[in-house]
Computed example of a mutant assay.
Amino acid sequence: MTRLSRLHAVRRSLRPDGQHLLWLRYQRPYHWPSTLAFLAARCIPGIETCSEGVYRRSLVFAGCQGLLQAKPGACLQVRLSGVGAAQVPGLIARLRRVFDLDAQPARIAAALSNDPLMARLLGARPGLRVPKGWEPCEQAMRTVLGQQISVAGAMTLAGRLVARHGQPLRAAEPCLSHVFPSVEALAVAELSGLGMPQARATTLSTLARALLAQPDLLRPGQALEQAIKRLCLLKGIGPWSAHYLALRQLGDSDALPLGDVALVKALRLHEGPQAQLAERAQAWRPWRAYAAQHLWASLADCNPASGRQDR
């Protein structure tokens, strides 16, 4: 069990009825508008909402359905319901991962600001974080559904996946109707007919079965190259998907999907059509994941009306 300390929770109110209030601290600065924009663009219909600065989602933890609401401020304020007090430490650890609360922004900025482009991007979004996946199966499905299509298109497909294979949410809640399908359900589900190529549906099934057979496949803390090699052995998973999973689920700070079209676009908007991502990225080690997040976020500056953040 994860032990709570003042580094993790400033204050907490735990109640026997499963209604808990937490205040989670982090190192400043934290560029909350970017994290909220990222989450809002990727809300899966039925399990998540993000509006007016508040993120809400359904969840399953230790076999029980629950709900959370997170609102940023001087601390991240989190309301949990349907969760036993014994599960709170584990949920705090997960929330710290998802919102990247343990990042050290001063250290990251000191390293990346040696690069002129990154210095400019850091100035625009000080304390930018790299949001992580809620849990391995969900992030794996998101990644495959997002192969070669827009974020909005991927979320439409994810909503269909949830509606067909997710369990209904027992507690009535506006805009939240289901919990994300379990890896056990997806490993045996028929995933064709969602409106995507059959090859992608097959990849979803392959990855779900792999996660069921190898629970540590997306375990954080693995060596990056070893993890990429293991993932690329799975049919339908190439370097882009493997690095994106390393970035979002393994939490590797140096993961970088070099073939990402949006990253290349962002770099060339800043540095001209001849800029080469693989070459430029050498200067960003070992924080290439944060550099990538800055590049993706900077696309919103090129089209402010859309507020778009790719990937």
Results as ranks from 00 to 15, higher is better:
114 N>E: 13
223 A>N: 14
222 Q>A: 11
170 R>H: 11
248 R>E: 02
57 R>V: 04
110 A>P: 01
251 G>P: 10
27 Q>K: 15
145 L>F: 06
271 E>P: 01
125 R>P: 10
134 W>P: 00
123 G>C: 10
81 S>H: 00
144 V>D: 00
198 Q>I: 07
207 L>T: 00
56 R>I: 01
51 S>R: 14
5 S>F: 07
251 G>F: 01
292 A>N: 08
219 R>L: 15
271 E>C: 15
120 R>M: 11
173 E>N: 07
118 M>H: 09
131 P>D: 07
167 Q>E: 14
186 L>K: 00
261 V>L: 13
263 L>E: 01
28 R>Q: 14
241 S>C: 09
211 L>Q: 02
83 V>H: 00
209 R>H: 01
2 T>D: 12
293 Q>R: 15
102 D>R: 13
41 A>D: 11
266 A>D: 05
257 P>M: 03
275 A>E: 12
251 G>D: 03
108 I>W: 02
307 G>Y: 02
175 C>G: 08
298 S>W: 05
134 W>A: 14
268 R>F: 01
247 L>Q: 10
85 A>N: 08
243 H>T: 01
264 V>A: 14
190 E>I: 04
57 R>A: 12
52 E>H: 11
6 R>T: 12
149 I>R: 10
135 E>C: 07
72 P>V: 07
115 D>V: 10
221 G>R: 05
266 A>E: 05
309 Q>D: 05
1 M>G: 12
168 P>A: 12
118 M>F: 09
181 P>D: 05
82 G>I: 00
284 W>S: 10
92 I>F: 04
311 R>G: 15
191 L>A: 06
61 F>L: 12
10 V>D: 15
169 L>V: 14
141 M>P: 02
118 M>K: 05
17 D>Y: 04
74 A>P: 14
242 A>F: 06
229 K>T: 10
60 V>F: 07
198 Q>Y: 11
265 K>L: 14
245 L>H: 06
23 W>T: 05
31 H>V: 05
262 A>V: 05
